[in-house]
Design a protein around this nucleic acid. Sequence first.
DNA 1: GTCTATATATGGATAGAC
DNA 2: GTCTATCCATATATAGAC
Lengths: 211, 211
Amino acid sequence: MESVNEVQKGASNEQKILEAAKKVFLRDGLHGSRMETIAKEAGVTKALLHYYFRSKEKLFAVIFEEVKGGMLPRLESVFGSDLPVFEKIERFVESYIDLLIENPYIPLFLVNEVNKDPEKFFETTQIAARIQQFVPHFVQQILEEQEKGNLNSIHPFHLIINVMSLCIFPFLGKPMFQKVAGMTDEQYKLLLQERKKEVAAFVMRAIKIPD
Amino acid sequence: MESVNEVQKGASNEQKILEAAKKVFLRDGLHGSRMETIAKEAGVTKALLHYYFRSKEKLFAVIFEEVKGGMLPRLESVFGSDLPVFEKIERFVESYIDLLIENPYIPLFLVNEVNKDPEKFFETTQIAARIQQFVPHFVQQILEEQEKGNLNSIHPFHLIINVMSLCIFPFLGKPMFQKVAGMTDEQYKLLLQERKKEVAAFVMRAIKIPD
DNA sequence: GTCTATATATGGATAGAC
DNA sequence: GTCTATCCATATATAGAC
């Protein structure tokens, strides 16, 4: 049974279209998505999509910006804070995995877009600029802890890449892991929940030097 | 400057098409790829693609099977062996990162395909069956080391997911990490080389209990 | 604003000459 | 085997009625 027109009855058609577009674009990608599919999902006709957004590209761009932008506040609230490194990592892991459990299609969507056209990905929203604003301070914190002897000598970039990898990849590899482990959707979701503690602990064991 | 017809002069047209198709499909995905693009890349016309492979779907299937199949021997040679757990992890990391440095488009391609249609992904080549053949033994090994007190109490699935994530995600996130860190392609490739030691060491610190 | 009907563009697939 | 020309299906986009 196909789900059609699942959006809130109260919303305006423009809103319905945006929600439908988000769902379809995230699931099927730009090329895989059809205007007709989005229209059906929103409970309107194709013509209306063009009325509001003029072209498929334009509609896609709106969703693209929204998804890109939506990731940043969480990053900023954790890394922009003046928490100690270990707290930051723990909070990031918890916060990010939670976000992705709620929006499991985001990783594949973003990974595709950033690979398709990195320039385009970074130009608007100054996403790179905003990230670069807190990374140096985080790197600095790492170096300080290393000097104090609380953190082993891992290169900060590797540490950052490791933490991101451990958080995000399980969502990209879900069908694979799930199949091999013979898990149901429910069970895999539970495993992802566990990872909030598991990943944090794993990373801490790998980098923390006990007093 | 676009690169057209870069393939070996000696190869047959069928071979040229296969190579071109691999390059384009891996880069642009099934929907993003155009028969015309592949033809140009191979230095022939579209008609010839249909002559040899009949349809786009069929051509894609050939590439798909090749890439899928190519990953398995490496997995099997490491995990099918009777090395101890820690060796297996170290060898896997080294072997897999090396493979991906040579073929950096594979992760994005496979992640897309497995997410698009998990059933289709696993049905042919019995890829799941072949993986499931050595996973239980590996899990068993982990449990044994844990009983012996050499390995901490991490759940084997988490450990496997962690290792895979640390190996693969840096290739998917390359444009992002590279941009944020302000690295050139050359520098990022070096960083990936470093990861062969780095990831192995990171994992060992996280799971190994010293005697 | 929203629809139906239609125009236009794209890209996969085939026919037929060489 | 390989090409050119063409067909046809699909999908985006627009026109015009309501």
